[in-house]
Amino acid sequence: MAKASGCHRIALQLEPHIALEAIILNQLERIPSTRRQEWLRGLLVQGFLIERQALQRVAVERTSRIGAGFSDWLAGESSRLAASPKREPMPAAENRNDAVHDARKPFAQLRRVIG
């Protein structure tokens, strides 16, 4: 890149045997020579903007996945309880306090299985 009057000049060679580059070269030939520089500049800027947006989406997805395993477990508790069908009355042998804990802890049933 050489600096010329506050602008940067970029020299780039496109390969005509690469499909996408061949399409770009064909389109460039159809554009009048006075508008080619402007078209190439717009193509470069659009591609850069699209790449930046994609990188930002990836960064957002990565941060949202960190700790997402049980992150909404307590936040969605009320909606899950409202959407769940009515439960059968519990047998008298079970402790009422265990039932309250079971509703808030999804793995509470494992306590009975494991011992």
Rank of each mutant, 00 (worst) to 15 (best):
L44P: 04
A4M: 09
T34H: 10
Q13C: 10
L14E: 01
Q53A: 11
L110H: 05
L20I: 07
L20S: 08
R41L: 09
I31Q: 04
A108S: 15
P32E: 14
Q46H: 03
Q53K: 09
E29M: 09
D98C: 04
T34E: 14
D98G: 01
T63Q: 15
R112D: 11
I18N: 14
R30P: 06
A68S: 12
R41E: 10
F70K: 10
L12D: 02
A93M: 12
L25Q: 12
Q37W: 00
R80E: 08
E38F: 04
I23M: 01
R112I: 07
E29L: 05
I114A: 09
M1C: 06
E94Y: 15
F48T: 10
R87C: 08
L74T: 11
F48K: 12
A108I: 11
F70M: 05
L14P: 09
P85C: 00
E29H: 07
N26G: 14
P106S: 05
Q13I: 09
A82N: 04
D98I: 04
A103L: 15
Q37A: 13
Q56K: 08
A99Q: 05
E51N: 13
P91C: 02
S33C: 03
P16I: 00
V113C: 01
K105D: 15
D72I: 06
K3M: 09
A108E: 12
E61C: 07
V58W: 00
G67V: 04
V58G: 02
